[in-house]
Structures are given as C-alpha cells and as structure tokens.
C-alpha cells in the first residue's frame, strides 16, 4: 500500500503539471493545423497568467480572471494572425516578438500596478479555482486500490484540469467530425485547394488562431489562478516550448498530444519529487541534472525516437494567390 500511495502522489503531480502543457499543446494544434506556426505559445500563456492573476486579484473572482486571461491571450493571437495572415510576415519572428513583449510587459505592469517585485497579490478563496471533490469520492476511498485511485487521483482537481482533459476528445471531434475541422486541416495542407473551393483562407486561419488564443489563455489562467495563487515573473518557464515539442512529438494529433504531455509532465513531477535523492547503484544525482531531465528527454525524443514528423504541408508559409 505504501508503494501505491507514492505512485498515486506522483501521478497526481503528473496531472497537475501536465495540464498547462496540454492546454498549450492543443492550442498550438489548432494554429499549426491551419498552417500558422506559433512559437509564441509561451508568451500568450504568460500574458494570460498575468492578466488572469491581476483580474482575479482586483475583482476577487477566479472566473473573471479566466475571462481576462483568455481576452488578452486572444488579443495576442490576433496580433500574430494580423502579422502572419494578413501581412504575410514571418511567423517565427512574429511569435518570438510576442514572447518578448509578454515577458517584458508582465514584469513592468506587475511592478507598476502591485509593487511586489513583479508578482501579483496572493489569491485566496473565490479568487482561485478550488479543487472539486467528485461525488462519492469520500465514500469509496476505503475500497482497496480502486478507491484511492478515484478519490486521490481522479477526484480533487480544479475545474480547469477536467476541462483540459475534456478538450482532448472535443478537439478530436472538431477536427475530424465537423466542417470547420475538415477545412482547418485542409487549409494547413493546401490553402490553394481551400481557396479554389470558394472558402476564405484568411478567415479560416483567423478562426484557428482565435482557438489558440482561448486555449493558451486558459493555460495561463490555470498556472496563476488554479495551480498557484498568483502570478510570478516568468512563471511559464518554457512550458510553451515543451508544449510545442509535445505537439511535434505527437505529430499534430490530439490524443497522442495528451500522452506526450503526460509523459513530459511525469518526468517533471519525477524530477521535482526525487531531486537530491540517492538512487541505488547510481548514488546522488545532482539536482540540476534531475531538473534538466525533461529537456534532455525532449531533445532525444525529437531527435530520434518519433520517426518522421511531417508537419502540415503549408505550415509557416503565408498564402499568396498564384499567378
């Protein structure tokens, strides 16, 4: 039972750290499937986290925080869209610019508004998304094995966690069972085909980046208003890039995206839990190495293990009508 308890704790932590990755990766999926590469997931998430924490701190409502996070993130997504769809700019440059703007402006505005060294005030009570106890969780907790799995692992997360995992089948359904999804996948592969079929390429891509904005906003809100109790500078800490790696690792497919994010999340949780611990036969592993583990694995996986990841064919290329 001791082992089960430890494992459940580890998996519980895995879920918590996977959620922002999952939301961000699914966000990237919408944009990139439509042919707009988005390296600015990180920046949008960070801006969303800051806006969410600020709004929640001022209004005392986690929901308003979430709204604010989504609004600012969608705004940045539209800026990216304006640069790369309407003006056919370089999508990488635009994404990097958004990352810089977000990193700088969150600190400056945070200091100007709250004077806590770039932090937002600590959120308490309704200003945070609280964990939800699923029905019957207490009643079954005594049942061996399955009980703890339900009451500790599945129950007891915030609403955003459930929403994030629900987005996996929803995204799959949207992509493969709706008209919007069919057109979205088509425009990322061959925008000329979409154009000649009488569909607006630009409007379709704008809708895709709006989806991206909504989900990165939710990811940011989760970080600042659910997982933590406020905004800390640079709190995304590269999660947007890991999400991008997970997206490539999963070859732009929703269900594999979830597993990729859980894998990266597990490594992260493992590193946090076992840092400084002595392993039999290996001895003490330096903290830095443990912390670097997810990133090292990212490089290894992307370099060799996934085979050929074929991105959407029109990805990164602004659409210009022929002739």
């Amino acid at each position: 039972m001791e082992f089960l308890g430890v494992l459940l704790q580890l998996l519980d932590a895995t879920i918590r750290v996977s959620v922002p990755l999952l939301l961000a990766a699914l966000a990237g999926l919408y944009s990139e499937r439509s042919g707009v590469f988005d390296i600015g997931l990180e920046g949008k998430m960070l801006a969303g986290a800051f806006a969410g924490a600020s709004a929640a701190a001022v209004t005392g409502s986690a929901w308003l925080g979430l709204m604010a996070a989504i609004a600012i993130s969608v705004f940045f997504a539209l800026v990216h869209g304006f640069a790369s769809i309407t003006h056919r700019g370089n999508q990488i440059v635009s994404g990097v610019a958004i990352n810089f703007i977000a990193a700088g402006s969150t600190i400056i505005l945070g200091q100007a508004w709250f004077r806590q060294g770039g932090r937002t005030p600590s959120l308490t009570g309704d200003a945070r998304f609280q964990s939800i106890t699923l029905p019957g969780a207490d009643a079954v907790s005594g049942v061996p094995i399955l009980g703890p799995i339900y009451s500790d692992l599945i129950s007891g997360h915030s609403l955003l966690v459930y929403a994030a995992f629900a987005m996996v089948p929803i995204t799959w359904w949207v992509l493969f069972r709706t008209r919007f999804g069919l057109r979205l996948r088509a425009v990322g592969e061959n925008p000329a085909a979409v154009d000649t079929a009488g569909i607006s390429v630009a409007w379709l891509r704008y809708r895709a980046v709006i989806c991206t904005g909504v989900l990165t906003g939710a990811a940011g809100a989760y970080l600042a208003v659910a997982q933590n109790a406020g905004f800390v500078k640079d709190m995304t800490a590269g999660k947007g890039f890991i999400a991008l790696a997970a997206l490539i690792f999963a070859k732009w497919r929703p269900v594999p995206v979830m597993f990729a994010c859980l894998l990266f999340g597990f490594l992260d949780a493992f590193a946090i839990r076992y840092q400084g611990l002595a392993f039999p036969g290996i001895g003490r592993v330096p903290v830095q190495l443990m912390q670097a583990l997810p990133y090292i694995l990212t490089v290894i996986l992307l370099a060799g293990f996934i085979g050929k990841a074929i991105p959407p064919r029109a990805g990164g290329v602004p659409y210009v009508k022929e002739r």
Binding site: L182, R185, A186, E189, N190, A193, V194, A197, I199
Partner: peptide
Amino acid sequence: MLVQNFTVLENVMLG
C-alpha cells in the same frame, strides 16, 4: 487543387 493526405471523399466534400 487537392489536399494530398485527405481521402478522395474528403477532397470532394471540401467547401
């Protein structure tokens, strides 16, 4: 003007 990794059906339907 075809989407290479779509099926015939999907291409015909598109739009």
